[in-house]
Amino acid sequence: MTSSKRQAVLIGARDTLPLVVAAMPFGVVYGAMAQTAGLSLWATLGMSAFVYAGSAQFIAVTLLGASAAIPVILLTVFVVNARHLLYSASLMPHASRLPHWFRVPMAFWLTDETFAVVSNRLTQQPPKSELPWYYLGSALLMYGNWLACTGVGVVLGHRIPDLTHWGLDVAMIVAFIGIVVPALRRHSHWACALVAGVSALLTHDWPNQSGLLFSAVLAIVVGAGLEKVSEVRHG
């Protein structure tokens, strides 16, 4: 590995660090919860290793604990994961230059967190050849952390301290703010953020995070629509 590649891996990992910290309590709580819901030690770790999707895993073990049928759980997981389709689609213009084999691990490791830092990187500087290495740095740190925290949750079980009250998730909130705000350059960007925020509040009690998906799609349509209108008006 050349030094520029190694550097890109490290920068990707560094930029993801606050989000890694924020994910820790969720990984630990998931590990403890999954066992209570009836998953074996290996199935609990296996879900983190092979599915690797925080919200989907949480909802799955919650439903499992409530003795829901497997098809119901799978359908719910599909709905919860639908936003990943938006992430993947939004990376399409940059992925066209990437080798096909790389797109498989890239897709597997596509989380809210890695998408956030990678899209931030893409708006800051034009895509370079180091992008896959940057992506890898972000993804490997998130993935390793998720597996490790699941393991800690499994080991601690019922004895876990109430990590959710530590407020580590605040790191995710402030990191996403640090990523979104500098990206708000045009009026249509601000309108998009405003619609997303207001709609997310109004739809917060919709089941399975469908309100999140609905709000995102609505905000995208409003933002892109306004941009088009202003383009037509100004020629």
């Binding site: 939004s90 998408f115 990206a183 998009c192 905000a219 995208i220 892109a224 088009k228």
Partner: peptide
């Protein structure tokens, strides 16, 4: 038009996540 819309994905999704995580 779709490519234009896809540019709005980060702002839209991340804002929705942040607002819910903060206020709910």
């Amino acid at each position: 038009e779709l490519e234009r819309a896809l540019n709005y994905v980060p702002i839209a999704v991340l804002t929705a996540i942040v607002v819910q995580a903060t206020l709910i």
